[in-house]
């Protein structure tokens, strides 16, 4: 198989398959959560559940001072690489083109050198997070194979993208194909691992906030 065959395979059938697994798996999980609903609360509401839910969904982006004091590394490094990942995913010109062709919507992108720098920072952040996890006895004890798996697929997708952009792997169709394959592995793994937090984190935040909002509690 030539490099170009590999690229066409990853861009064509494999991409379609990964997209199907991702959409099917993720929607099964989300719809299941929504259909299950929540137990009916018979108490009289003291505040708006919707407003409370939305507020908490946003509020949780701000690091909680207590958590920051207890684990500043986790908060700072975690935030840096999460933002870097989202910037590289959503604001890189070729990615915007891909999203446009798949979903039919597009938005402005960032200049390439900016995305390149953000990607480098994200890769360093991910490495630092891994080293920290391995060096910290409690964290290491708490880590499961799944944690290392999702670190691996996240790191690989960023690394292969960065290598392809800098043309460090040759020929180029091979580099691009490897990156697309890494992204497809990420998509396939996503609905069945902790990576679902990309979507479910917001559901959990909303439900949490809604409960407190209904009770009229600030959270």
């Amino acid at each position: 198989m030539t490099a170009m065959d590999f690229l066409m395979l990853t861009k064509g059938p494999l991409f379609q398959a990964a997209l199907a697994v991702f959409a099917l798996g993720m929607l099964v999980r989300l719809v299941e959560i929504f259909v299950l609903g929540r137990a009916h609360n018979y108490a009289a509401p003291r505040g708006s559940a919707v407003l409370g839910g939305l507020r908490t969904t946003y509020k949780r982006f701000e690091p909680d001072p207590g958590t920051f004091k207890a684990a500043p590394f986790d908060v700072v490094v975690g935030m840096i690489w999460h933002i870097g990942f989202i910037v590289a995913l959503l604001l890189f010109i070729p990615h915007v083109e891909l999203i446009k062709s798949t979903f039919g919507i597009a938005w402005p992108a960032l200049p390439n050198p900016v995305v390149d720098a953000v990607t480098a920072i994200t890769l360093l952040g991910l490495l630092a997070a891994l080293v920290h996890r391995l060096a910290h006895p409690v964290k290491r004890f708490l880590s499961t194979p799944e944690d290392y798996l999702i670190w691996g697929v996240t790191f690989l997708v960023m690394l292969t993208g960065w290598l392809a952009y800098h043309r460090i792997i040759n020929p180029y169709p091979l580099a691009l194909g490897i990156h697309i394959l890494a992204a497809e592995i990420f998509l396939v793994v996503l609905p069945f691992t902790k990576l679902t937090h990309i979507f479910t984190a917001f559901v959990a935040r909303y439900y949490n906030g809604a409960i407190f909002g209904r009770k009229g509690v600030q959270s």
């Binding site: 066409m8 861009k11 064509g12 991409f15 379609q16 997209l19 199907a20 697994v21 991702f22 959409a23 099917l24 798996g25 993720m26 929607l27 099964v28 999980r29 989300l30 719809v31 299941e32 929504f34 259909v35 070729p94 990615h95 083109e97 891909l98 062709s101 798949t102 979903f103 039919g104």
Partner: peptide
């Protein structure tokens, strides 16, 4: 564009998504 995959990804996404909603 170079990053655009061949085939109709949007349709595939809708079909798989509909199936996902139904199964979920």
């Amino acid at each position: 564009a170079l990053s655009v995959p061949p085939g109709n990804s949007g349709e595939m996404l809708l079909t798989a998504g509909a199936a996902g909603v139904a199964v979920g």
